[in-house]
Amino acid sequence: MPTSPIRTVEISDDTIRLGQFLKLADLAEDGTHARELLEDGEVEVNGRPEARRGRQLVDGDVVAVDGQRVRLAARS
C-alpha cells in the first residue's frame, strides 16, 4: 500500500496532547473517536504504536491514522 504524503498542522504552543492533536488534525471527529482510535491500536507516533491519549507531542512528531500522516509544526 503506498504511503500518503505528510500533511503539516501548526500549533500555537510548543507541545500538544495526542488526543487534542488528533481532533485538530481532523484525524478524529471528537474526543470519543480519538479515544476509540487509541484503544483500538490505530494510532502511530513517529512510526510506533501509541495508546496514550495524554502523550505530549512536540515539533516534528508525525502522527499516522489509517494511512493519513500528519506532522506537527510548532509556530516560532
Rank of each mutant, 00 (worst) to 15 (best):
13 D>L: 01
43 V>C: 03
4 S>R: 14
64 A>V: 04
23 K>C: 03
62 V>F: 06
8 T>H: 07
73 A>Q: 11
6 I>A: 02
71 R>Y: 08
50 E>F: 00
68 Q>N: 08
25 A>L: 04
32 T>F: 01
47 G>A: 13
11 I>D: 07
45 V>N: 03
60 G>Y: 09
12 S>Q: 14
6 I>C: 07
71 R>G: 02
63 V>A: 08
26 D>C: 13
7 R>Q: 14
21 F>N: 03
1 M>R: 13
53 R>G: 02
76 S>L: 09
47 G>F: 12
65 V>K: 03
22 L>A: 05
14 D>T: 14
56 Q>Y: 00
23 K>A: 06
34 A>M: 06
33 H>I: 05
15 T>P: 01
63 V>W: 04
52 R>V: 09
23 K>F: 05
51 A>H: 09
55 R>E: 11
19 G>K: 01
54 G>N: 14
66 D>V: 08
61 D>W: 00
6 I>K: 06
32 T>N: 05
72 L>S: 02
53 R>V: 06
10 E>N: 09
30 D>F: 04
36 E>M: 11
36 E>D: 13
69 R>A: 08
64 A>P: 04
66 D>M: 11
19 G>P: 01
14 D>S: 14
60 G>T: 11
34 A>W: 01
36 E>F: 05
67 G>M: 06
43 V>R: 05
43 V>M: 07
46 N>F: 12
40 D>W: 08
53 R>A: 07
12 S>E: 15
44 E>Q: 15
56 Q>P: 09
31 G>F: 10
